[in-house]
Design a protein around this nucleic acid. Sequence first.
DNA 1: ATCAGCACGCGTCGACCGCGAGTGCCAACC
DNA 2: GGTTGGCACTCGCGGTCGACGCGTGCTGAT
Lengths: 341, 341
Amino acid sequence: MASSDERRFAVLRAIVADYVSNQEPVASKAIVERHNLGVSSATVRNDMATLEEEGYIAQPHTSAGRIPTDKGYRLFVDRLSDVKPLSGAERRAIRSFLDGAIDLDDVLRRSVRMLAQLTRQVAVIQYPTLTHSLVRHIELVALTPARVMLVLITDNGRVDQRMIDLGDVITEDAVARLRTMLNSALVEHHLTDAAAKVSELIEEAPAELRDPMTRIATVLVESLVEHPEDRLVLGGTANLTRNAADFPGSLRQVLEALEEQVVVLKLFAAASSPGTITVRIGEENEVEEMRSTSVVSIGYGSQHALLGGLGVVGPTRMDYPGTIAAVRAVANYVGDILAGR
Amino acid sequence: MASSDERRFAVLRAIVADYVSNQEPVASKAIVERHNLGVSSATVRNDMATLEEEGYIAQPHTSAGRIPTDKGYRLFVDRLSDVKPLSGAERRAIRSFLDGAIDLDDVLRRSVRMLAQLTRQVAVIQYPTLTHSLVRHIELVALTPARVMLVLITDNGRVDQRMIDLGDVITEDAVARLRTMLNSALVEHHLTDAAAKVSELIEEAPAELRDPMTRIATVLVESLVEHPEDRLVLGGTANLTRNAADFPGSLRQVLEALEEQVVVLKLFAAASSPGTITVRIGEENEVEEMRSTSVVSIGYGSQHALLGGLGVVGPTRMDYPGTIAAVRAVANYVGDILAGR
DNA sequence: ATCAGCACGCGTCGACCGCGAGTGCCAACC
DNA sequence: GGTTGGCACTCGCGGTCGACGCGTGCTGAT
């Protein structure tokens, strides 16, 4: 029967809600008290038995209440329809806080902070990817006679730098000529086209500039375009300790994993198009050490260009609706700010 | 008697050593077993009674062994004479690991990581201060018609960026002229002189450039020279959980405090001249939340110029000799690399 | 001053027990 | 068939108790 199915789901929802807020197994009696389902506790118990058979909930010990399983959370999240948006005050707070930002770094730092605060969890933001960026400017600065620094400035405000060892002394004049060549070839072009443009540059270059140009091109293409070490900003790790019980003995592991950029990047790999929330619950995470956490992530950027991912990492026992709302809101603002400027 | 004093200190040293490695109160019997002082446990007990009266050690409960107090650690550290340097292998590891660095960010990231690994504690490194730096280059990039980005490149490889709202549309040509003016006035000069030079620039500027130049000057001087938001890199926070017992209930507090830049900067405020280790033990810390930790810090840079501070934060029960050696070694390498390049 | 010996204090650990929460099941009811 | 009150049962939790042993402080001897 449809209605019986519905009530069973209502029971699951109640269990999730109560467990999230009280973090203790919830009993049938507690459900009928706090949520008015219009049935008795015995009926709820029957439903709970079914839910348990189907694997949505479990009981820690024989005579305790039930807690949701990963599968239970999954169903709960999938059926989540009306994500209540943030309050006006919250929206205004975000906006005004982020508007004070001074540069890209600052935007991202403030955003993680905001997100961590809103969700009371660990927040992560990826730096906007370079792949879709337009080159605004390339600077070449001689640091020592045989060493230059390449500075790449893109349209979303990101500034990247690389040391380049030229292997030979170079004159200030040569540096200037290289700089001019690079800029006229690349400015206002997409970084994805850089590889092609740059190889042309090498061919066109006068003999004496060919070697340094080759080295510069290699660094530019290899380390900035093909293998950009995706940077990310982390915040609110203190929130992990909020309920140490949520990470049975593995708090350490989680913290360690979070310090590994590679691992965290994997968590956000799913972030596809902006606006689409991805939720990875417990065991669904591919990363071993993160099996005791849930990850809520989303892509940010404008409608057409995905700039990067952001999200939060927390216990599977988290306030999914609230977290999703916050993540979405922050992604909107970050996207606006980085695109709008 | 001098010799009796000496033995009492030897007892303290033994207590510190044993407590640090076993992290449990150490008994008189254990001392005579592990360290050969040539006296009986009864004698050690007498010494311990004295040490306790003088406040160097304490016992958690009446019939337990002793643990060092902050004052005890202090004495221990003060009398530390021969800091055993790192092993050759370790030195080589550090060197080769840091040499692979790609730019300043990378040097610092690798260094914290290294330091955290060596000490198994939380490592912190301040970005090299701007105040003593030489300006290598200033770049001005128009991001939108009325907005430019100021990029400052200094001789130690640091790259800083600031958005500047000009309040009015500006031509590409004007930007170029401003850039030229800024560079010819500031390049190869100390940032400390920037304020003076820049105010000259404003006066010399042609009327139509005066307004944008003023805005740029303000940002440059105020936000980069006078109030540089001292950035810092943190690593190894996972090590805090290594022994949660070390932070009775306050692990959360410590983590939170570490996320506050201001707080952490205060911890390192003492870092004076390069090469001088500063140790703050427990209650000696001015920061309230850090009273349960010890901070070992040092300045790094060349002989004459202090570039910044670095160090570690850990439990008062830490391996001081080892930590001090590691901190000193890493500071040396970081100083070398940033100065030598 | 050092040391062996001893009595004492006290924290730790395991066993035990009673309580109560929460369940599963059953029989009755709509 | 779905729902409900009732009831017996399970099992974890918290508190008590006692034995044990560790580490100490003290005392008296050297």
